[in-house]
Design a protein around this nucleic acid. Structure first.
Ligand SMILES: [Mn+2]
Ligand SMILES: [Mn+2]
Ligand SMILES: [Zn+2]
Ligand SMILES: [Zn+2]
Lengths: 178, 178
DNA sequence: ATCTTATTGATAATGATTATCGTTATCTAT
DNA sequence: ATAGATAACGATAATCATTATCAATAAGAT
């Protein structure tokens, strides 16, 4: 069962002086939409719950929630932050597969249970050795996608294919996300 | 022994069409200053090696080097990217342990057996599922170091988790983190 | 109901990164 | 060595996410 308004507010404890509609709306939205949500996602989805809410308020509220520890901010490196409601169990987490040839990024989340166990063990070992409290991780694999692999015939992009000079424009661009 | 100009250029292979002074300067600087370097660090340190170099060229070169796999980009979430040279030898391979409180980054290479298994198995699965040729990976764990953990031991209104995101708020004294 | 002031939101400002575009200089082929 | 094609450069303007201001609003206490 998902937490109701009263639960959410209670979870904020005494960390804020006034509980307002915008705060209720932002936290409520995040709590019922787990995943990696951008500020624009939130802004675009709050016309019903809190009409007229401003971007500034969303940013401020996210900061508050993050400091309180109710949500977590994740930076993918694409220039905009994502936020995620922090329940006890981790869900809807994904890693990245990045093509060095065309820059395409694939989000994959079909983990094996085995993989999750291994991550946990690593976390424990690191916590023990370095005295860290580990909260999250980022994992990305780099390589070449099928298209780029076929184009370069097993080799990495050559400067000039030794004869052809017109073709060979770099396809897609490096900031996609799927 | 650190790599000389010829080594650096060779390592770029045929992945760029022309080898220029700015590229030599940027890659050379990164190769002899291992660590986690910001764009401004590079810009400010290249007056000798390449006078008059422009920010634009630095950004473009860093993109090229990253796509080639010679350097690695690290996004702390404080609004500016950091870069790190990746030595050619396998021995110096390491992962990152990042403190969300003070921004400190720990390079660790004392992997547990589970971590090596995780990497190998995941690579196989991803190659099969998505048709990728996987060449490398970046793994980072996020959390709080011992110092920061002790500091935030209290549970009441902490005005600031003092960290990565507020680093920009103090334009006066930019403390170098490493 | 009144008062205090925490919070809001329209707006301007900041700062990192990217797009333009005319100029420069690297590389290849004479 | 020379010349030509054009990859790469760099000054500048443009984007884009995030912050700072500040007058107006409304939550919570009395
Ligand atoms: Mn993830
Ligand atoms: Mn490192
Ligand atoms: Zn590709
Ligand atoms: Zn710390």
């Amino acid at each position: 069962m998902r937490p109701g308004p009263a639960d959410l507010r209670r979870r904020m404890g005494g960390r804020c002086r006034r509980w307002t509609a915008p705060r209720e709306a932002v936290l409520g939205f995040l709590s019922r939409r787990p995943g990696h949500v951008s500020v624009k996602d939130i802004y675009g989805s709050l016309s019903g719950a809190c009409p007229g809410i401003g971007m500034t308020t969303i940013y401020r509220t996210l900061g508050l929630l993050e400091r309180t520890g109710v949500i977590q901010r994740i930076t993918l490196g694409d220039g905009q932050a994502r936020y995620e409601f922090k329940p006890a169990d981790r869900k809807s987490h994904h890693h990245h597969l990045i093509c060095l040839g065309c820059g395409k990024i694939i989000d994959y989340s079909d983990f094996v249970q085995e993989e999750l166990d291994l991550v946990r063990k690593t976390e424990e070992a690191l916590a023990r050795r370095h005295g860290f409290l580990i909260l999250d991780h980022n994992i990305e694999f780099l390589g070449f996608c099928g298209t780029c692999r076929a184009r370069s015939a097993g080799d990495l992009p050559r400067p000039v294919p030794a004869g052809v000079r017109s073709a060979r424009k770099r396809p897609g661009n490096q900031k996609e996300r799927s």
